[in-house]
Amino acid sequence: MVIPVHDVNPVRRTPWVTYALIAANVVVFLRTPGVAGSVAGGSDLARLCHLQAFIDHYAAVPRELIHHQLPRLVPTGRTGVGPQGPGCVVGAPSYDKSPPLSVLTAMFLHGGWLHLLGNMLFLLIFGNNVEDRMGHVRFLVFYVVCGYAAGYGFALLNASSGEPLIGASGAIAGVLGAYIVLWPTARVWVLVPFLVFLPLRLPAWLVLGFWFVLQAVYSSGHGVSGAGTVAYAAHVVGFVAGMLLAWPLKPGTPPPPEPRGLLFGRRARPRSAW
């Protein structure tokens, strides 16, 4: 898996919405009980029970989205001792949950530092250009629509699942889909793990296309163990939704700057003049 660090594609205006989304995700993460205090998310029972209750309240659950089957018993955030020993106490929910609204709140939840930082890195690198092309308001609407498409798309494919769906990945996948449509030849600096992290400058269609292929393969259950813990299908749906929504903007999109200097880790030779 390559790690993008910068794209060679300048913007004309400050991407305030992208910055605001990153800030909102970070603030919500820091306010999520039991997560921000540890890189691994923590294993303390009290912390785990608080986290389960918080996630159950605000995460999107496929069974709730498709069948509107809200559970009668949910984690309360308290600990107790039962026949099986210490554990999390469950009880009747003390809140009214709206499944459609949970798709929105789930977009700002993350399960750990790596989950958060990985998503925010992709949003920072590719979101600024998409926002620049669409404008602030349209980009915000686009982001939310892609997140909803990813959430409901995953739910339709897993209608009986009671596992919570969290993360901005589906919405950000839509941003990546829009980027590959609008600037397929833009150069992206990436780090490729090959003994050491090797810096390369590759076209966006290769970087993002490779990312999409990986998500599609993983969503089918191949090539990765424990695929059920990551909603790869949501990434695929969000990416396709972003491509479709951005396609009408392609004819009027200015091309990225011509690549100069280093290319694929080597300095390109200047062309001879005729």
Rank of each mutant, 00 (worst) to 15 (best):
V2G: 09
D7K: 11
P10V: 07
V11E: 08
I22G: 08
V27A: 12
L30W: 03
R31D: 09
T32V: 05
G37F: 04
S38C: 11
V39W: 15
G41Q: 10
R47L: 15
L48P: 04
L48K: 14
H50W: 12
F54Q: 06
F54G: 01
I55L: 08
L65E: 09
L65I: 10
I66W: 07
H67R: 10
R72L: 13
P75F: 03
G80M: 12
G80F: 13
P83G: 01
Q84K: 11
S94L: 12
D96E: 15
P100N: 07
T105K: 07
L109D: 11
H110D: 15
G112E: 13
L114V: 11
L117R: 04
G118C: 05
N119A: 11
M120K: 06
F122L: 14
L123V: 07
L123W: 01
I125K: 01
N128Q: 14
N129A: 09
N129G: 08
V130W: 01
R133T: 07
M134A: 05
R138Q: 10
F139V: 00
Y143E: 03
Y152G: 07
L156N: 00
S160N: 13
S161P: 07
G162E: 12
E163R: 09
L165I: 13
L165A: 08
A168D: 06
A168K: 04
A171N: 07
G174Y: 02
I180L: 05
W183D: 09
T185M: 12
T185H: 12
A186G: 02
L195Q: 09
L195M: 09
F197N: 06
L198K: 04
P199H: 06
A204H: 02
W205Y: 12
V207G: 00
V207C: 05
L214S: 15
G226S: 13
G226L: 12
A227H: 15
A233E: 14
H235T: 11
G238I: 00
A241P: 01
G242W: 00
M243H: 08
L244C: 02
L245T: 05
A246V: 02
L249N: 06
K250P: 00
P254N: 11
F264G: 02
G265E: 00
R267F: 11
W274Q: 14
